[in-house]
Amino acid sequence: MMSLENEVLLFITIVIPIFLAAFIMYIVRALKGPTIPDIVLAVDCLSYDLAAFLALLSIYFRSPILIPCAIVLALWIYALDVYVSKYLMKKEMGE
């Protein structure tokens, strides 16, 4: 009988390469563009998935202190969307 700890660690080890494949595809799309909304959308998806991945890794590293990074990433990537769409819409930031 496998212990709970080994089972969880094995599962995460198997999942990491799949996440990695998805990240590489997002990064390629983000670097290729071609238009500005495309790049922002790819960065968005990359960040949200990265947040999920970071939460998984904090179990893998057994350090709960790493988890706030995931919240911060999810909260602040929204700001990037807002800035870019504001600039595209109004060509002015404060109105």
Binding site: I27, I39, L46, L54, L57, P68, C69, L73
Partner: peptide, 20 residues
């Protein structure tokens, strides 16, 4: 936006280096 991509990847790098 390219520099934002770089920042996101760096943030992940720092996380892997255990520097929250």
């Amino acid at each position: 936006l390219f520099s934002a991509i770089q920042s996101t990847l760096y943030a992940f790098l720092y996380y892997l280096l255990m520097a929250p």
